[in-house]
């Protein structure tokens, strides 16, 4: 982002208005997020099962199949819902109490899955609305902050356009701008690249990468490419549990020696699919003499989950 203030609290360039006080970053040596034993059940469905997580500055990817509990975990960390059990500290505050939750909300930005807008608002008006909900009462300073975040996501030129007239990618950027108001120390992004075309996705990746340079970003996604490109760390969630926590390279390494090519479908493979060349790419324990392939993050992810979901699961 071109005009984001530095973490020391001084504006990076003239004309910026971000508050950027030190309280929006965790105290030295403490994690941005410390979650322990988070559990949450919807009726009889276990959405989160004893999830423990520590997040530090940088972009962390959260991968998992549909229904794994990713959105629930993000909503818990964003203080939108409360867990049944477990302890949580976000930026040195405990969101368990009303006071603590309000304190956390002043320091975090949240971009939900399928963000909604008041369609009659312009991009500027909507971000201004969010800034007011973030307790910015001083009009001039607030407008300066709104201009800063809109510039940061590259929407300065269309800030006067109504949201209903913007493309899906631009709307996502409006939502990201709203999440960036106040220069939050913790940014929670729930599938922000869904529905974007490749160009928009690359642009969005760049924004997220910049956002993660000096703050903690938790990115939920189905796109293993996003994780490979953006994240220092990746967490795989399945059935409400953390199945893997490490670097993207370590996740790919899970599949080392367990990916091979064949000319026909391999019944013994945990997962296999036909590629564009007509060959099959198989995951699992390869037969003797199999032609091994270089594993990707996606291979490691699928093997962590135990292969592709069956038709019933899907």
């Amino acid at each position: 982002m071109t005009t984001r203030p530095s973490s020391s609290g001084t504006a990076a360039s003239p004309g910026t208005a971000a508050p950027a006080d030190a309280t929006r970053r965790p105290a030295a040596g403490t994690p941005t997020v410390a979650a322990s034993g988070l559990s949450l059940t919807y009726h009889r469905t276990v959405a989160l099962d004893e999830v423990s997580l520590r997040l530090d500055p940088g972009v962390t990817g959260l991968l998992g199949p549909n229904g794994a509990g990713k959105t629930t975990l993000l909503r818990v960390l964003a203080t939108a819902i409360r867990p049944d059990q477990g302890t949580l500290t976000v930026l040195d505050d405990d969101p368990g109490s009303v006071r603590g939750r309000t304190a956390v909300r002043r320091k975090l930005g949240y971009l939900p899955q399928s963000p909604g807008f008041h369609p009659g608002f312009t991009a500027f008006e909507f971000v201004d609305y969010v800034a007011i909900l973030r307790e910015h009462t001083h009009r001039a300073a607030r407008h300066q902050e709104v201009r800063r975040v809109l510039a940061a996501v590259g929407l300065s030129d269309v800030r006067g356009k109504r949201i209903r007239a913007l493309s899906g990618g631009m709307r996502q950027r409006v939502a990201l701008a709203a999440a960036l108001v106040d220069d939050p120390g913790f940014l929670v992004l729930d599938e922000p690249t869904v529905g974007l075309d490749p160009e928009q996705r690359i642009r969005f990746r760049e924004l997220i990468a910049e956002a993660g340079e000096d703050r903690t970003v938790l990115l939920s996604t189905h796109q293993t490419e996003d994780v490979a490109m953006l994240c220092r760390r990746v967490v795989v969630l399945a059935h409400g549990r953390i199945e893997f926590d490490g670097t993207p390279a370590e996740l790919a390494e899970q599949a080392a020696g367990r990916v091979w090519a064949s000319t026909a479908r391999e019944p013994a493979a945990l997962a296999g699919w036909r590629t564009g060349t007509g060959e099959f790419r198989n995951l699992g324990d390869p037969p003797d003499g199999a032609r091994l392939l270089e594993p990707t993050l996606e291979d490691g992810y699928l093997l962590t989950l135990g292969g592709l979901p069956t038709k019933e699961d899907a």
Binding site: L111, P112, Q113, P115, H118, A178, V188
Partner: peptide, 18 residues
């Protein structure tokens, strides 16, 4: 009715006030 409900789901201004 609030189409932006989820986008503004984690702001400091409490929902009862709004």
């Amino acid at each position: 009715d609030d189409p932006a409900r989820h986008t503004t789901g984690a702001v400091p201004v409490p929902r009862p006030l709004r």
